[in-house]
Protein backbone atom coordinates (compact mmCIF):
# COMPACT_ATOMS: atom_id res chain seq x y z
CA UNK A 1 0.00 0.00 0.00
CA UNK A 2 1.42 3.38 -0.97
CA UNK A 3 1.70 6.14 1.55
CA UNK A 4 -0.89 8.13 -0.38
CA UNK A 5 -3.37 5.32 0.06
CA UNK A 6 -2.54 5.17 3.75
CA UNK A 7 -3.11 8.89 4.07
CA UNK A 8 -6.40 8.61 2.23
CA UNK A 9 -7.40 5.89 4.67
CA UNK A 10 -6.38 8.12 7.53
CA UNK A 11 -8.54 10.84 6.06
CA UNK A 12 -11.48 8.49 5.88
CA UNK A 13 -10.96 7.82 9.57
CA UNK A 14 -11.58 11.47 10.37
CA UNK A 15 -8.38 13.33 9.62
CA UNK A 16 -9.13 16.27 7.36
CA UNK A 17 -7.04 16.25 4.22
CA UNK A 18 -6.25 19.82 3.29
CA UNK A 19 -3.21 19.86 1.06
CA UNK A 20 -2.94 17.96 -2.14
CA UNK A 21 -0.19 15.40 -2.31
CA UNK A 22 2.75 15.42 -2.31
CA UNK A 23 3.04 18.12 0.34
CA UNK A 24 1.84 16.73 3.62
CA UNK A 25 0.88 18.95 6.51
CA UNK A 26 2.25 18.34 9.99
CA UNK A 27 -1.01 16.92 11.29
CA UNK A 28 -1.25 14.45 8.43
CA UNK A 29 2.34 13.49 8.89
CA UNK A 30 1.69 12.70 12.55
CA UNK A 31 -1.25 10.56 11.56
CA UNK A 32 0.80 8.78 8.93
CA UNK A 33 3.54 8.23 11.46
CA UNK A 34 1.03 6.67 13.85
CA UNK A 35 -0.16 4.29 11.16
CA UNK A 36 3.41 3.43 10.23
CA UNK A 37 4.12 2.53 13.85
CA UNK A 38 1.25 0.05 13.98
CA UNK A 39 2.41 -3.50 13.50
CA UNK A 40 2.49 -4.08 9.77
CA UNK A 41 0.97 -7.31 8.47
CA UNK A 42 4.25 -8.12 6.77
CA UNK A 43 7.29 -6.38 8.18
CA UNK A 44 9.78 -5.46 5.47
CA UNK A 45 12.36 -8.15 5.05
CA UNK A 46 15.87 -6.74 5.01
CA UNK A 47 17.87 -8.00 2.08
CA UNK A 48 21.13 -7.38 3.90
CA UNK A 49 22.70 -5.78 0.83
CA UNK A 50 24.85 -2.67 0.80
CA UNK A 51 27.34 -1.64 3.44
CA UNK A 52 27.35 1.21 5.96
CA UNK A 53 28.35 4.57 4.47
CA UNK A 54 31.34 5.95 6.35
CA UNK A 55 31.19 9.51 7.71
CA UNK A 56 34.11 10.57 5.48
CA UNK A 57 32.26 9.22 2.43
CA UNK A 58 29.06 11.02 3.31
CA UNK A 59 31.00 14.22 3.88
CA UNK A 60 32.73 13.89 0.52
CA UNK A 61 29.47 13.57 -1.42
CA UNK A 62 26.99 15.52 0.74
CA UNK A 63 27.34 18.83 -1.10
CA UNK A 64 23.70 19.89 -1.28
CA UNK A 65 22.39 23.03 0.36
CA UNK A 66 18.79 23.61 1.42
CA UNK A 67 16.79 26.83 1.86
CA UNK A 68 17.01 26.47 5.66
CA UNK A 69 20.80 26.52 5.39
CA UNK A 70 21.29 22.80 5.96
CA UNK A 71 24.41 21.76 4.11
CA UNK A 72 26.09 25.17 3.96
CA UNK A 73 29.78 24.58 4.67
CA UNK A 74 31.79 26.89 6.92
CA UNK A 75 33.24 29.75 4.90
CA UNK A 76 32.82 33.35 3.85
CA UNK A 77 33.11 35.70 0.92
CA UNK A 78 32.20 39.15 -0.42
CA UNK A 79 30.86 40.51 -3.69
CA UNK A 80 34.11 42.38 -4.21
CA UNK A 81 36.13 39.16 -4.00
CA UNK A 82 33.52 37.42 -6.10
CA UNK A 83 33.84 40.00 -8.87
CA UNK A 84 37.49 39.07 -9.36
CA UNK A 85 36.74 35.33 -9.43
CA UNK A 86 33.80 35.90 -11.78
CA UNK A 87 35.89 37.90 -14.24
CA UNK A 88 38.44 35.10 -14.32
CA UNK A 89 36.26 32.01 -14.39
CA UNK A 90 32.72 32.90 -15.45
CA UNK A 91 32.66 35.67 -18.06
CA UNK A 92 33.41 33.39 -21.00
CA UNK A 93 29.83 32.13 -20.73
CA UNK A 94 28.00 34.66 -18.56
CA UNK A 95 29.64 37.86 -19.82
CA UNK A 96 31.44 40.55 -17.87
CA UNK A 97 28.24 41.88 -16.33
CA UNK A 98 26.32 38.62 -16.16
CA UNK A 99 24.50 39.57 -19.36
CA UNK A 100 25.08 36.09 -20.86
CA UNK A 101 27.07 35.20 -23.96
CA UNK A 102 25.06 33.65 -26.80
CA UNK A 103 22.50 31.31 -25.29
CA UNK A 104 24.31 30.98 -21.96
CA UNK A 105 22.25 32.02 -18.96
CA UNK A 106 21.76 35.70 -18.18
CA UNK A 107 22.49 36.35 -14.50
CA UNK A 108 21.74 40.05 -14.17
CA UNK A 109 18.75 42.29 -14.80
CA UNK A 110 15.22 41.09 -15.39
CA UNK A 111 13.69 42.58 -12.24
CA UNK A 112 10.00 43.28 -12.70
CA UNK A 113 9.70 41.45 -16.03
CA UNK A 114 7.82 38.32 -14.95
CA UNK A 115 4.50 39.65 -16.25
CA UNK A 116 6.07 41.05 -19.40
CA UNK A 117 5.58 39.63 -22.87
CA UNK A 118 9.18 38.39 -22.79
CA UNK A 119 10.11 37.76 -19.16
CA UNK A 120 13.76 37.67 -18.12
CA UNK A 121 14.06 34.94 -15.49
CA UNK A 122 17.36 35.71 -13.74
CA UNK A 123 18.66 34.88 -10.27
CA UNK A 124 17.48 38.28 -9.04
CA UNK A 125 14.16 38.40 -10.86
CA UNK A 126 13.04 34.79 -10.47
CA UNK A 127 14.98 32.51 -8.11
CA UNK A 128 13.14 32.14 -4.79
CA UNK A 129 16.12 31.09 -2.63
CA UNK A 130 19.66 32.40 -2.36
CA UNK A 131 20.82 28.99 -1.09
CA UNK A 132 20.04 27.55 -4.54
CA UNK A 133 22.81 29.66 -6.04
CA UNK A 134 25.30 28.10 -3.64
CA UNK A 135 23.96 24.59 -4.24
CA UNK A 136 24.08 24.97 -8.00
CA UNK A 137 27.55 26.50 -8.26
CA UNK A 138 28.86 23.88 -5.87
CA UNK A 139 27.41 21.09 -8.01
CA UNK A 140 27.96 22.26 -11.55
CA UNK A 141 30.07 25.41 -11.98
CA UNK A 142 32.29 26.45 -13.62
CA UNK A 143 30.80 24.64 -16.62
CA UNK A 144 33.36 21.99 -17.57
CA UNK A 145 35.33 22.33 -14.34
CA UNK A 146 32.84 21.35 -11.67
CA UNK A 147 33.86 20.82 -8.04
CA UNK A 148 36.96 23.00 -8.50
CA UNK A 149 35.97 26.02 -6.39
CA UNK A 150 36.68 26.38 -2.67
CA UNK A 151 33.83 26.98 -0.24
CA UNK A 152 35.00 30.58 0.23
CA UNK A 153 35.16 31.18 -3.52
CA UNK A 154 31.57 30.00 -3.82
CA UNK A 155 30.40 32.36 -1.04
CA UNK A 156 32.10 35.21 -2.90
CA UNK A 157 30.54 34.24 -6.24
CA UNK A 158 27.10 33.97 -4.66
CA UNK A 159 27.57 37.40 -3.10
CA UNK A 160 28.68 38.86 -6.43
CA UNK A 161 25.77 37.36 -8.36
CA UNK A 162 23.32 38.59 -5.71
CA UNK A 163 24.90 42.03 -5.96
CA UNK A 164 24.07 42.09 -9.69
CA UNK A 165 20.42 42.56 -8.74
CA UNK A 166 21.07 44.60 -5.60
CA UNK A 167 20.00 41.78 -3.32
CA UNK A 168 23.37 42.48 -1.72
CA UNK A 169 24.22 46.17 -1.99
CA UNK A 170 27.43 46.44 0.03
CA UNK A 171 30.35 45.03 -1.96
CA UNK A 172 32.16 44.30 1.32
CA UNK A 173 29.23 42.55 3.03
CA UNK A 174 30.49 39.20 4.34
CA UNK A 175 28.31 36.33 3.22
CA UNK A 176 28.80 33.14 5.25
CA UNK A 177 27.15 29.93 6.39
CA UNK A 178 25.26 31.77 9.13
CA UNK A 179 23.60 34.48 7.04
CA UNK A 180 23.15 33.08 3.52
CA UNK A 181 19.90 31.28 4.27
CA UNK A 182 18.45 34.51 5.67
CA UNK A 183 19.00 36.46 2.43
CA UNK A 184 15.59 37.38 1.05
CA UNK A 185 15.12 37.08 -2.68
CA UNK A 186 12.82 39.53 -4.55
CA UNK A 187 10.66 36.71 -5.98
CA UNK A 188 10.61 34.53 -2.85
CA UNK A 189 6.81 34.54 -2.79
CA UNK A 190 6.34 34.11 -6.51
CA UNK A 191 5.67 30.37 -6.49
CA UNK A 192 2.71 28.18 -5.59
CA UNK A 193 2.03 24.45 -5.53
CA UNK A 194 0.78 22.70 -8.66
CA UNK A 195 -2.96 23.36 -8.77
CA UNK A 196 -3.80 21.98 -12.20
CA UNK A 197 -6.40 19.56 -10.92
CA UNK A 198 -8.36 22.51 -9.54
CA UNK A 199 -7.52 25.43 -11.84
CA UNK A 200 -7.80 23.29 -14.98
CA UNK A 201 -10.66 21.01 -14.00
CA UNK A 202 -12.45 22.02 -17.20
CA UNK A 203 -10.05 19.69 -19.04
CA UNK A 204 -11.77 16.72 -17.46
CA UNK A 205 -14.76 16.36 -19.78
CA UNK A 206 -17.30 13.59 -19.68
CA UNK A 207 -18.31 13.71 -23.33
CA UNK A 208 -15.96 15.64 -25.60
CA UNK A 209 -17.69 16.89 -28.76
CA UNK A 210 -17.47 14.53 -31.77
CA UNK A 211 -19.70 16.14 -34.45
CA UNK A 212 -19.94 19.72 -35.76
CA UNK A 213 -17.71 20.94 -32.95
CA UNK A 214 -16.58 24.24 -34.41
CA UNK A 215 -16.69 26.57 -37.39
CA UNK A 216 -14.39 25.92 -40.33
CA UNK A 217 -10.82 26.48 -39.11
CA UNK A 218 -8.40 28.87 -40.78
CA UNK A 219 -4.62 28.69 -40.82
CA UNK A 220 -3.33 31.62 -38.75
CA UNK A 221 0.32 30.62 -38.34
CA UNK A 222 2.81 28.48 -40.21
CA UNK A 223 6.08 26.97 -39.02
CA UNK A 224 7.40 27.23 -42.57
CA UNK A 225 6.95 31.01 -42.41
CA UNK A 226 8.93 31.15 -39.15
CA UNK A 227 11.61 29.08 -40.86
CA UNK A 228 13.74 27.98 -37.90
CA UNK A 229 13.51 24.21 -38.39
CA UNK A 230 17.01 22.68 -38.58
CA UNK A 231 16.30 21.17 -42.00
CA UNK A 232 16.17 24.69 -43.36
CA UNK A 233 19.46 26.47 -43.74
CA UNK A 234 18.01 29.78 -42.57
CA UNK A 235 17.83 29.01 -38.84
CA UNK A 236 19.03 31.78 -36.55
CA UNK A 237 22.72 31.64 -35.71
CA UNK A 238 23.86 31.77 -32.13
CA UNK A 239 27.23 33.31 -31.59
Amino acid sequence: MSRSVKLATAAALGVVMIALLPVVSGAQQKQAKASVEQPAPKPPVKLGLGRPALPEEIQAWDIDVRPDGQGLPPGKGTAKLGDAIFQEKCTICHGEFGEGVGRYPVLSGGLGTLKADRPDKTVGSYWPNATTVYDYIRHAMPFGSARSLSNDEIYSLVAYILSMSDVIKDQDFELNEKNLAAVEMPNANGFYEDDREVSEKQFWKANPCMKDCRAAPKVIGRAMAVDVTPDNKAGPKVD
Binding site: D64, L114, K121, Y126, T132, Y136, G190, Y192, E193, D194
Partner: peptide, 22 residues
Protein backbone atom coordinates in the same frame (compact mmCIF):
# COMPACT_ATOMS: atom_id res chain seq x y z
CA UNK B 1 15.83 21.28 -1.57
CA UNK B 2 14.70 23.96 -4.02
CA UNK B 3 17.47 23.05 -6.41
CA UNK B 4 18.14 25.08 -9.54
CA UNK B 5 16.24 22.51 -11.62
CA UNK B 6 13.08 22.86 -9.52
CA UNK B 7 13.07 26.66 -9.09
CA UNK B 8 14.88 28.47 -11.89
CA UNK B 9 13.87 25.69 -14.29
CA UNK B 10 10.86 23.36 -14.41
CA UNK B 11 8.55 25.91 -12.79
CA UNK B 12 5.74 27.24 -14.94
CA UNK B 13 5.41 31.02 -15.20
CA UNK B 14 1.76 32.05 -15.37
CA UNK B 15 0.31 35.26 -16.86
CA UNK B 16 0.03 36.87 -13.41
CA UNK B 17 3.80 36.72 -12.97
CA UNK B 18 3.65 33.94 -10.40
CA UNK B 19 4.83 30.42 -11.16
CA UNK B 20 3.54 26.94 -10.46
CA UNK B 21 6.08 24.67 -8.82
CA UNK B 22 6.20 20.90 -8.35
Amino acid sequence: WQTREETSKYTDLMPDGRARKH
